[in-house]
Design a protein around this nucleic acid. Structure first.
Lengths: 222, 222
DNA sequence: ACCTGAACACCGTTCAAGT
DNA sequence: ACCTGAACACCGTTCAAGT
């Protein structure tokens, strides 16, 4: 797929919304601040103005990129025998997608809800229904789960990335643990005391433990 | 407190980190994109360069502004008789602070944790201890609660603001409800079905219901 | 219809020069 | 020590002009 780029030739690899969104995802994955219209134009072998023929603004581009990543992640969630297990798998799918693409988090939190958030809500909601939750509580149960899933996933992704090899997670936690131990004894007695535990915990496990608590709460209200 | 601003006079209202942070909070509250060094300099009756004598970067300024808002919010959390109730009040304090200053959310999610996040963790942690949670589970219980509190508060604040009079929350929800009802019937059966419930729910109540579920989970592990 | 790239109106940040 | 404001190296976005 070599690119034609000399003067008068007609490019056979025409720009399209999809190609622009894919290139934007690449740039965002290379670094939170990697997406600029100039960098995007360079990668697509065109000028910055060309992009505006297909996309209205950077904001719209970010939303579209987030939608694409989440849609692919949800497509890959395996089928489950029980609604409980299905909810756990959807949750993990979203958690890992945001962990791998931390910039996605900010897009999911927008109002009005972008396609991606609506998709997550719909998928979770169907399982809530399957769980036998009474009709009146459908919205509340689903939205509590979705808020937790997105909120905690965003929190996690902001802390450091499981999949980014350039940041050594263990080293970061070790340094943080040392920092915690040096905090003021009067102001931070608790934090100092648990500093050592910071290095042992597993974010994904804790995320799932929270999901299980919420599911237990939902089950108790049946 | 009129300001001296003529040529050679020495200003008696000298710049300071604190005055700069307070002005930054004002600008951020006036609009997510209201904080620029030029606008800040104008408000402080100086040039943009002067600010850099006191603050290293915009990033540091944002963190400092978030720390200040959270510190004030935590100071106002009333005392409680029981650890459960104390956790609920800290949670609501953070929820309302982020709701009133939505830009704070992004600052709390940074790594390494800013002062504000550390403060929330410390306050929650002490109550977890008071609850009688065994030492080994201190970190996990506290961090699960903190992730939920910050994560869901940020999610909520991004949706619309309880305290901002310029956005009518009820109107927004009504419009969203209509949008949901028009979604594709094949792709969004659940979302369409619960569209009406969107208008009745109370974000703060659901936030607290989630806290109670987590507290019940913690209690079950005692 | 689609693309090009210069131009506009901004940014955060730096720094020589002032007091 | 602290402040000033011009200057630098960028941005997102627009738009006349091309094919």
């Amino acid at each position: 797929m070599a690119k034609a780029r000399r003067g008068a030739e007609r490019r056979e690899d025409a720009l399209s919304r999809e190609r622009i969104v894919d290139a934007a995802i690449e740039l965002l994955d290379e670094g939170e601040h990697g997406l600029t219209f100039r960098a995007l134009a360079t990668r697509l072998v065109t000028g910055p103005g060309a992009i505006y023929w297909h996309i209205a603004s950077k904001s719209e581009l970010l939303v579209a990129a987030g939608d694409a990543v989440v849609a692919r992640a949800l497509d890959e969630v395996p089928a489950s025998a029980t609604p409980d297990e299905a909810i756990r798998r959807i949750a993990v799918g979203v958690f890992e997608a945001i962990d791998a693409h931390p910039w996605v988090g900010a897009q999911l939190s927008r109002a009005p809800w972008p396609e991606a958030t609506l998709q997550i809500f719909e998928r979770i909601g169907r399982q809530v229904q399957a769980l036998g939750v009474p009709g009146r509580a459908h919205f509340t149960s689903a939205s509590t789960l979705v808020s937790y899933i997105i909120g905690v996933s965003v929190q996690n992704a902001a802390q450091g990335r499981l999949f980014d090899p350039s940041v050594d997670r263990a080293d970061f936690l070790a340094a943080e643990s040392v920092r915690w131990k040096k905090l003021d004894a009067q102001a931070y007695p608790f934090t100092r005391k648990v500093a050592a535990q910071l290095r042992e915990h597993d974010d994904r496990d804790e995320f799932l433990a929270g999901i299980d608590l919420l599911l237990a709460g939902v089950a108790a209200s049946l």
